[in-house]
Write a protein that binds this DNA or RNA. Structure first.
Lengths: 208, 208
DNA sequence: CATAAACATGAATACTGATTCATGTTTCAT
DNA sequence: ATGAAACATGAATCAGTATTCATGTTTATG
């Protein structure tokens, strides 16, 4: 059907333009990286195309060769962030049999990721206002994975019974809040300490 | 020293202008209420002063009699929200001796509040980008109260030992995520169900 | 090399929306 | 009642910035 369909990753809307040479590829990457830094630092609205292109070292018009609108780079950033986080956590937990251990390793990987990419983190938060659809996709996808993991663990008797969906949201909420404490509130605690405390809460609860 | 200092509530920066008659008071309230609805619905950036004043039924210039800038109404909304939430939770938990019971009642009150005021909820989220200082104050104040509550409970042997600060953030994270699930992701679960599941997690953890 | 496609430029366009201001109207104290 | 302060108006100002476009430059390819 028609022209060859480019890479394997298919999304909604046609992107502004896929680069067709190495030069184009590099420029597009430069713009995307600049957008990540600038939007992460100043927020979506204060990050002008001018800022982004000058950070990328290209002219203003060049932006529109690769992205249809300002919102489009933003969406792409959010999507990329989602893939990256899922990949990071999956990798950190892939050969851990026990769910509780996986929970701990996953939380640690997440917090380390967040500390390493504070910009991307803020971008996801801002997506709720700039691109609600992307925000939804981010969390829904995440939640779905979480739910099936919890179901399996429940069946295997590794964790107690309980509504998996609510539990998934609660656990995501813990991770998110601890990540936020780390980067927005600049906590100086070590990730190790945080994870140990959180794990104890997740595994055993507060009961004496 | 100088003129009488108005009401008891002192904040940073001088406000645009405190009204001095009943008429002014009413107008100011109308604008604040309109701002809550409009900003809550459209977000900070898409909510223009024109929208807000027309929703309030006053002329555009009237806005600036009571608020110095657009950001100032926003700040005020965030501050108000903080007081309201704390008040709601304090009231719901005031004569509960046991910390775990208080946790449950507090979560329930919070979720009910959030469901009743979805606009105010989104506004606090957006504060991270529009007015980081107000955002900080919101969560830091909250966290401080939480920490002292947990410390006391720990000393009284009502809950197990553990770093109170991390625990406080984790618990706030649970509440926030469940609130978000409720209004942003339009969950249809009853608050009762959610609270029961979350309470079990908080009290007993996931261990089988 | 030649030539078309891809890529790059940055000035010009177009529009939005916060804030100001000169001018009324209402309220209050005397 | 009357002058001053408080309140209200909405058109005009002013600035920022997303997007377009006419014009070059580079790259791939026969």
């Amino acid at each position: 059907m028609g022209k060859s369909a480019g890479q394997a990753e298919a999304h909604r809307q046609a992107p502004g333009n896929q680069p067709k040479t190495a030069r184009g590829e590099a420029t597009r990457k430069a713009i995307l990286g600049a957008a990540e830094r600038v939007i992460g630092a100043k927020g979506y609205n204060d990050a002008s195309i001018g800022h982004i292109t000058s950070e990328a070292g290209v002219a203003q018009g060049t932006f529109y060769i690769y992205f249809k609108t300002k919102e489009e780079v933003f969406s792409e950033l959010v999507l990329e962030m989602g893939r990256l986080v899922r990949h990071t956590i999956a990798e950190a937990t892939q050969d851990i049999e026990n769910r509780l251990d996986a929970e701990k390793a996953g939380l640690q990987a997440f917090l380390e990721f967040v500390r390493a990419h504070p910009d991307l983190y803020r971008i996801v938060q801002e997506a709720l206002f700039v691109d609600p659809e992307a925000y939804h996709e981010y969390y829904v996808t995440f939640s779905a994975g979480y739910c099936s993991g919890l179901s399996a663990a429940e069946k295997a008797g590794q964790i107690s019974k309980g509504d998996v969906e609510t539990r998934a949201w609660a656990l995501m909420g813990i991770a998110r809040a601890l990540g936020e404490q780390l980067i927005v509130f600049k906590s100086e605690k070590s990730i190790r300490e945080i994870v140990d405390t959180a794990y104890d809460l997740i595994a055993n609860g507060l009961k004496p």
